[in-house]
Amino acid sequence: MLVALLVFFWKLNLDFSVIFDKLPALLGLHLTAQGGLQGAAMTLFLCAVSMSIAVVMGFVVALGRMSNNAVLFAVATFYASFFRGTPFLLQVLLIYLGLPQFGFVPAAVPAGILALSLNYGAYFSEVIRAGISAVPRSQRESALSLGLSPAQVFWLVVLPQSMPIIVPPATSLFISSLKDSSLVAVMGIWEIMFLAQSYGRSLFRYMEMLTAAAIIYWIMSLVLEVLQIAIEKRVAASNTHQPRRP
């Protein structure tokens, strides 16, 4: 497959001098004229901030969906259903173009972070809910019988046991957010895809720029995959209790 991919790019007759010339900007090694991030640095910033917010939102929504309160359950279920059931690009446009109709004119970067956070918060909620639900009810009952409070049961008993189930899909969502962040290019954010399209139009070298962007996305995904494996092993090891010899 690698050979086939190399042959494909070789047949495109790419001008690698153009790629090497614009590569530092695509990687985010240079700041914008206003001193802001661009390229891969902007992509990583968007993902880091939005995924941090999305994890918090996911926990809140997951608890709402598991709540006995009808209002909390309805609101959490509606939120998860809407943001999981509509295209992300549509959500980006609704936020960026719709909020100004209500008097809110968000800047491109905050709007992009908001869109990513709302979308991935819905997916994180399902992952977290599945992990918490997988812990047997007997574990909670046993912890309560020992005198632990419900909050202590959740943080000390339920959550640690659910982490091996939550971590693999959660880290996969972070990798997916790298690629979905390319859709916020429609807002004018200077991330990888926006720069690739801009340079492609100005230089009439679309394939060179798109190829460079694809390789950068791929390399970042590979790095995150390695981190994912390390995190999964660490979580699995922390939940494995080896019996001590007398």
Rank of each mutant, 00 (worst) to 15 (best):
residue 2 L to R: 15
residue 7 V to M: 07
residue 7 V to S: 12
residue 10 W to H: 14
residue 15 D to Y: 04
residue 15 D to N: 12
residue 18 V to A: 12
residue 18 V to L: 06
residue 24 P to H: 00
residue 25 A to N: 12
residue 33 A to Q: 12
residue 38 Q to F: 03
residue 39 G to S: 04
residue 46 L to M: 14
residue 47 C to Y: 03
residue 48 A to T: 11
residue 51 M to Q: 09
residue 52 S to E: 03
residue 52 S to C: 09
residue 55 V to C: 13
residue 57 M to Q: 09
residue 62 A to T: 06
residue 63 L to T: 08
residue 63 L to R: 09
residue 64 G to Y: 08
residue 66 M to S: 14
residue 66 M to N: 11
residue 69 N to W: 04
residue 71 V to L: 14
residue 73 F to K: 14
residue 73 F to P: 07
residue 74 A to G: 11
residue 84 R to M: 07
residue 87 P to N: 05
residue 87 P to S: 06
residue 90 L to M: 11
residue 96 Y to S: 09
residue 100 P to Y: 02
residue 100 P to R: 00
residue 100 P to E: 05
residue 101 Q to F: 12
residue 104 F to Q: 11
residue 105 V to W: 08
residue 106 P to V: 02
residue 107 A to Q: 15
residue 107 A to K: 14
residue 108 A to M: 07
residue 110 P to L: 00
residue 111 A to G: 06
residue 114 L to H: 01
residue 115 A to P: 07
residue 117 S to A: 13
residue 118 L to I: 07
residue 119 N to V: 04
residue 122 A to H: 05
residue 123 Y to H: 05
residue 124 F to V: 04
residue 124 F to K: 08
residue 124 F to Y: 14
residue 128 I to N: 09
residue 129 R to S: 04
residue 129 R to I: 01
residue 130 A to C: 07
residue 136 P to K: 14
residue 139 Q to L: 12
residue 139 Q to E: 12
residue 142 S to A: 15
residue 148 L to K: 01
residue 148 L to T: 04
residue 149 S to Y: 04
residue 152 Q to C: 08
residue 156 L to D: 14
residue 158 V to F: 02
residue 161 Q to R: 11
residue 168 P to V: 05
residue 170 A to R: 01
residue 171 T to L: 13
residue 175 I to E: 05
residue 176 S to T: 13
residue 178 L to Q: 00
residue 182 S to E: 09
residue 182 S to N: 03
residue 186 V to G: 00
residue 186 V to L: 05
residue 187 M to I: 10
residue 189 I to P: 15
residue 191 E to L: 13
residue 193 M to H: 07
residue 197 Q to D: 09
residue 198 S to T: 15
residue 201 R to K: 11
residue 202 S to P: 05
residue 210 L to A: 03
residue 210 L to C: 03
residue 216 I to Q: 05
residue 217 Y to G: 09
residue 220 M to F: 11
residue 225 E to M: 14
residue 234 R to E: 10
residue 237 A to C: 06
residue 237 A to G: 12
residue 239 N to C: 11
residue 244 R to V: 14
residue 246 P to Q: 11
